[in-house]
Design a protein around this nucleic acid. Structure first.
Ligand code: MN
Ligand code: MN
Ligand code: ZN
Ligand code: ZN
Lengths: 124, 124
DNA sequence: CGCCGTTTTGCAAGTGATTCGCAGAACAAG
DNA sequence: CTTGTTCTGCGAATCACTTGCAAAACGGCG
């Protein structure tokens, strides 16, 4: 694990929420070039240390967000007002995936799921 | 409803699967400029005649896919081999959304969900 | 119909996120 | 050290998408 990759992985691990490439760059500063950050993110995802999903939001446009991979993958809620993410805990779709595989004769290897709306704070 | 918007909506309606802007353009030909297609897609989504989600796939990269809105929204399976979409039927997350709203004190106004893997044909 | 304010469109240029080419730096053996 | 492989910085390029702007189409209404 090179210094750049380590820095990117640390950034993901220490973040409480999914980070975009820009978010990672903001956190690690000038440790390496942005191209290296993108390459590190691809590397981490390919080797299973990170996961990602693409989210479109009004303020930040379309960006890919990365999370350090844990034991079991989580899903997230994105607040359209404060733009924070809330961890919704581990995936609850296991049952549904199995069911869909049988029902539609497909092999589901992954899925993307996230919710958006207003968080408790912003709703007040 | 202008001619361009009608053409785009027709393209979405007649498609059996979600279409990217490029997909729409391929189907309607030279009826209008691509900027108009993008504007029409935004318009249709804003006015509730279409829905979209962003999907990243190895072959086509990151693109936004649009579907003509029906009575109830559906979710889709994307085959990573033939790149076709399979309609998985109406959303089955109603229960889960309610549960998450209570559990995490959030207001869920929308969610993005899709599955990917290998379709029956490609698995053989 | 003819006039005028509002929308929509085409065209071309601009954005923003992400990727690539390439040459030099860092590594890993031998 | 020597040499083959991987990784990195830098700058340019891509790709999906958006925008500015002037012309075209539309929608009353007198
Ligand atoms: Mn956001
Ligand atoms: Mn695909
Ligand atoms: Zn919030
Ligand atoms: Zn297939």
């Amino acid at each position: 694990m090179t210094r750049a990759r380590k820095a990117v992985l640390d950034a993901l691990r220490s973040a409480e929420e999914p980070l975009s490439a820009a978010g990672v760059i903001a956190r690690i500063g000038d440790i390496c070039d942005q191209a290296t950050v993108y390459r590190a993110l691809s590397y981490l995802e390919e080797t299973g240390s990170a996961e990602s999903f693409v989210l479109h939001c009004a303020r930040d446009g379309t960006e890919r967000y990365y999370i350090a991979a844990g034991e079991r993958h989580h899903h997230w809620f994105h607040c359209e007002s404060c733009h924070r993410f809330i961890d919704l805990g581990v995936c609850r779709l296991g049952r549904l995936c199995d069911q869909l595989e049988r029902e539609f004769d497909v092999r589901v290897t992954e899925h993307t799921l996230y919710f958006s709306g207003l968080c408790g704070d912003c709703r007040k």
